[in-house]
Write a protein that binds this DNA or RNA. Structure first.
Lengths: 242, 242
DNA sequence: ACAGGTCTTTGACTTACATCAAAGCCAAAT
DNA sequence: ATTTGGCTTTGATGTAAGTCAAAGACCTGT
C-alpha cells in the first residue's frame, strides 16, 4: 500500500447521501463499506485514469474536481464532463474493460476506489445498491442526452447559461452558494465541453457581464440575475400557441 | 392481453447473440426467458414510449427501426439515437422512473418487453446477465461520448461520413450489405441527430455523390469508396509528429 | 392518371461563431 | 521588483452552416 492510499468506510462519510443509496440499516451499511477498497489522492493535473487503461474500478470523488475528456486521432479534444464531490467516474470502462476517456484532476483530489467486482457482488446481495448503480448509469445517459440537445441545437449564450446554472445547482446541493462560484476550469475547457472556442466563452461572459446578469473576474463568477440566466437558457415562446 | 402481444422465448430467438449475453447453458437460458414478459407491435410513426411516461420496462427491438428524441420547451427537437434489431431502448427511464425521451418507430416494429423488475431480479441471480446489463448501459454512455465529440468538434462532412459508416457497420453485423443501405429516416431526422439542418445533409450527400464516394437516390445509399469515407471521418494528420 | 402530401434538392443570401492577432492580467519564480 | 508563462480579453476578418425560397421527386389514394 502506497502512502497516498488508506482504508476507509462509507458508513461515516459525510458524502454518503450523495454517492450511496439511502435506506440502509447499520448492519447493511457495514457490509457496504466493502465496496470501497481504499482511497487515492490525485494531484492537480494528474490523471486518475487514461484512455486505454484497464478498467477495474469505479471512483467516487471525495474531494476535488475532475474533467473527463476524449481525443480523436487528429488531436481534437472533447471534454465530456466535469465532476465534483459525490459523483462517480469510470462508467465508460465497463463495456470494453478498458477506459475510453481520460479523467484529469482540475484541483487536488481524493477518490474512493470501488473495484467493480465488489460493486457487482454487493449489488447482487443488496437490491437497493443494485438499483442505485443502475440509476447512476441512467442519470449519466440522460445527462448526455441533454448535452446532445445543447451541442446540436443551442446557441452560445444558451449553452453558457445552462452550464453556469447547472454548476451552481450542483454546488448548492453540496452546501455552497447559489450565486457565487469559482471556476475550476479554463475558458478553453468550458469551450471544449460546450462545443465552442475559448474566445466565444470569453466574449459571452463579457456579454452577460455587460447585461448585468453576472459579475465575472477571471475564475470568479457571481450570478446577479438567475432568472435572466434561466430565460436565456430557456427562452419563452412569444405565444403559448406558437 | 391485447391481440398485438404474445408470450415468447429468448432461448430460440435468432437475435439472441445480439441482445442477450453469451455463455449460458440450456437450463439458465430457460430461466432467462422470464425477462421477456411479452412482445409488442409498434406501427410506423407510433411511439413505444413518450417523455413523461412511467418507466416499467426496457425494450429489445426484434424487428424494425426506432428513433429516440427529446424536445425542449421552445419546441426544438434533438434526435438522440437510431436503434435497430437487437438493440435495447428505455434506459433513460431508470433514473427517475419516468421516460425522458420519445421512442418512435420509423418502420413497423416488434419489441420484446422486459419489465425492469424482472431484469433486476434475474441480474441478481445470474452474474453474466448482470454484467451484460452493465455493459449495455456503459456502451450507451460511450456512444454518447462519441456523439459529443461529433457535435462539438466535427464538420458536416465528417459527421455524415461517421454516421453512414456507423449505420452500415451495424447493418452488416445483422447480415446486411456492407455497402448498400436504405435509410429509414428523413434528411431532417439525420440532421437533427447530427446537429445540422436538413439542407446541409442534402448538400453533403450531393457532395459525396459528386466526389464518387457514394451513390444516393433518395433513401437508397451505396457506399462506393468506404476508404474515402473513413478518411473524411478521420482525416490523417499530414505528419505523424504533428 | 392525377391530385395532394411529404420529402428532397439546389440556389442566393445571411449569420453566428471561428480564426488570427495583439495586448492585458495575474500568480509564481527569480 | 521584475520576469516568465499561462490564461483571458478584445478587435478585425473569414467561413461553414443556417435561412429563405422555389422547384422537383416520389408515394398514396381515388
Amino acid at each position: 500500500m502506497t502512502p497516498d492510499t488508506f482504508k476507509v468506510a462509507c458508513s461515516n462519510c459525510n458524502l454518503r447521501e450523495l454517492c450511496m443509496p439511502v435506506g440502509f440499516d447499520n448492519q447493511d451499511m457495514k457490509k457496504l463499506d466493502e465496496v470501497v477498497a481504499k482511497r487515492h489522492q490525485v494531484k492537480q493535473g494528474q490523471m486518475l485514469f487514461a484512455n486505454g487503461d484497464e478498467f477495474t474500478s469505479l471512483y467516487a470523488i471525495r474531494t476535488g474536481f475532475f474533467k473527463t475528456c476524449i481525443s480523436n486521432e487528429d488531436g481534437r479534444e472533447q471534454v465530456t464532463g466535469f465532476q465534483m464531490a459525490g459523483e462517480i467516474i469510470g462508467l465508460d470502462g465497463i463495456v470494453s474493460d478498458r477506459h475510453s476517456c481520460n479523467a484529469v484532476a482540475l484541483e487536488d483530489a481524493e477518490v474512493c476506489v470501488m473495484p467493480f467486482a465488489n460493486v457487482e457482488e454487493l449489488s447482487r446481495e443488496f437490491p437497493v445498491l443494485q438499483r442505485h448503480v443502475h440509476k447512476i448509469m441512467s442519470r449519466e445517459i440522460v445527462r448526455e442526452n441533454g448535452m446532445m440537445m445543447m451541442l446540436g441545437n443551442m446557441r452560445a449564450e444558451e449553452r453558457l447559461a445552462a452550464f453556469l446554472l447547472n454548476l451552481v445547482q450542483r454546488l448548492h446541493a453540496r452546501g455552497f452558494s447559489q450565486s457565487e462560484l469559482v471556476l475550476r476550469m479554463t475558458r478553453e475547457e468550458i469551450g471544449s465541453y460546450l462545443g465552442l472556442k475559448l474566445e466565444t466563452i470569453s466574449r459571452t461572459f463579457s456579454k452577460f457581464s455587460e447585461d448585468g446578469v453576472i459579475e465575472v473576474k477571471q475564475r470568479y463568477v457571481k450570478i446577479l440575475n438567475p432568472d435572466a440566466l434561466k430565460k436565456i437558457f430557456n427562452p419563452q415562446p412569444c405565444h403559448s400557441k406558437l
